[in-house]
Design a protein around this nucleic acid. Structure first.
Lengths: 298, 298
DNA sequence: GTAGAGGCATAACCCAAGGTTATGACCTCA
DNA sequence: TGAGGTCATAACCTTGGGTTATGCCTCTAC
């Protein structure tokens, strides 16, 4: 389960990407603020560890070999993911005197915001972003109170005084363990069936749970089998066979691909809008406006 | 441009994920084959570096704090990406006596295969996969010659003797730099316009180029402005303003989000099928069959 | 043809991060 | 109250990765 040692440290791959872009080990070294021999040694070590020749070194520069180019492309996604992680951490850590303050609901903070922050940083290098992650209601309250300039929430119920714009649509997915009877269903489960089934669900008041309750129309959902406060915990519980759950499709793509969870077709409109919100009295300006534009573009 | 130091080394985050899953620092240490004090020190160092408290340590185990859970979720995607990189590298490096041999065209090898390999490894721990990355024609030839059990190719033209099944549909996207006149277009560009415009394109014979030529119907495309052999090089050329290009939408999502490239609506059916191919005489069995199933599920 | 510039490799040296084992302090539970 | 689990601290060691100095190669320009 732990990451193999040669993949855990991305600096070598990061350096490889710089070499690919700049065409020489020396220039890549300069970009990373290390000496040329250090870069050279690092790249050699990387090749030794992965057991492949990645670079074509010549007295006039270095270029990627064929497999090197493929590896570089794979490495790029890993480095990008690490970069998104770094952007999120920087936003969490930033002090409150910084320029842009944002609050986001769990789904947005978890799955969408990191990429947005990376894009925002491209437009505003050096901008410090402060992020509050909370549930939709708290996000709305923080925006209304002026603690944050911009918020991202799920679901339709919003307090007055807020201006909201839909930035994306999130589809909810019914998931079960592969061994669950529903896993083999071809006919969509009905609202009634969903209402009857005890589910693994988030706590009452979460955006995901509210969206599900609404999707049932007039029906009232059975008491949940378990209530858990994190998406990850729910996924594990479902995979272990606890019962069905309703989760954002953003949250389960990896598990569906890996086959640890199975999506069940459902005959109810499991959609919800992800909205950007700000005070109706204010105008979005500067970085907040740009972040909103980035979010819309997704 | 280089990755910040605290994000380059993922081992700390990987360890954090183990703690989250197992509930104690000691058990996480065991999973990573290091001593408990080493793990403890590493986690403390991680918290120091990111400047956040991630763990709630108690005499009966350790759990994530609120921000810890959010960070863990972000970290998971970074670790997963690194894991996909590792799976790809392992497949490239594997010796030829290993059990499963696969060949894939560039688009598949770059964007889809790593995730599939991760899923495959979940089903077959320890399985060694050998990967050949080549263009569609060479992949087909390798399958036909029996050098590889399973191939993934783009486009419709296949030699006789191969069995093919569509595993995914890939949409091609016309992209330009934000400053390009087409970037502001609301009306779709026509096939005639696309045929006339000198493009930045892959070399003749690549799957992407063939698909584009076919999409023009009877029209014959203008000579390309530049021919480049890697997707990355094309993206840079387009972003620098060289002209339009037609690329797999898988290849440009990040750039579209970041705004360095802009998608142009097109009035031609820019779709192509990604197909799994194997020898018509053979039956897919074992890991090859599972990899095919995983690919279909995507 | 030769000098110079740019590029990578090697050598010698140094430092610190991170590993280990041994041990202690703390809490819970039978 | 003692046993068994947890995490923290201490003392020590190894090694990966950094630095500067230098050499060799190849292409280009005069």
């Amino acid at each position: 389960m732990p990451l193999p040692p040669f993949a855990a440290d991305l600096t070598g791959f990061d350096l490889l990407l710089s070499v690919a872009r700049l065409g020489s080990v020396g220039r890549a070294a300069a970009e990373h603020r290390i000496s040329q021999p250090a870069a050279s040694a690092r790249l050699r070590e990387l090749e030794r560890r992965v057991g492949l020749t990645l670079l074509h070194r010549t007295p006039r520069g270095s270029t990627l070999t064929g497999t090197g180019a493929l590896v570089a492309d794979w490495a790029r996604s890993a480095v990008d993911a690490a970069d998104a992680l770094a952007a999120g951490l920087a936003a969490l850590r930033a002090t409150h005197e910084s320029r842009l303050t944002v609050a986001a609901s769990q789904t947005v903070a978890e799955y969408l915001l990191p990429a947005w922050l990376v894009a925002l940083r491209a437009a505003h290098p050096g901008l410090a972003v402060t992020l509050q992650a909370a549930n939709s209601a708290d996000v709305a309250a923080a925006v209304l109170a002026g603690q944050v300039e911009l918020g991202f929430v799920e679901g339709p119920d919003l307090p007055a005084g807020l201006h909201a714009e839909v930035v994306a649509t999130d589809r909810l997915t019914v998931v079960v363990a592969p061994a669950h009877p529903w896993a083999r269903r071809r006919r969509a489960v009905t609202a009634a069936e969903l209402a009857e089934a005890p589910m693994v669900s988030r706590e009452a008041g979460s955006g995901t749970r509210r969206a599900f309750d609404q999707a049932l129309g007039g029906l009232v959902a059975a008491a949940p089998m378990v209530e858990l406060s994190s998406t990850t915990a729910i996924k594990h519980a479902v995979a272990a066979g606890s019962g069905p759950a309703v989760l954002s499709s953003l949250a389960v793509t990896a598990e569906l691909t890996a086959g640890t969870l199975v999506a069940v077709p459902a005959a109810v409109p499991l959609q919800r809008r992800l909205q950007a919100v700000w005070r109706a009295a204010d105008q979005l300006i500067g970085p907040a406006r740009d972040l909103y534009a980035i979010a819309r573009r997704t």
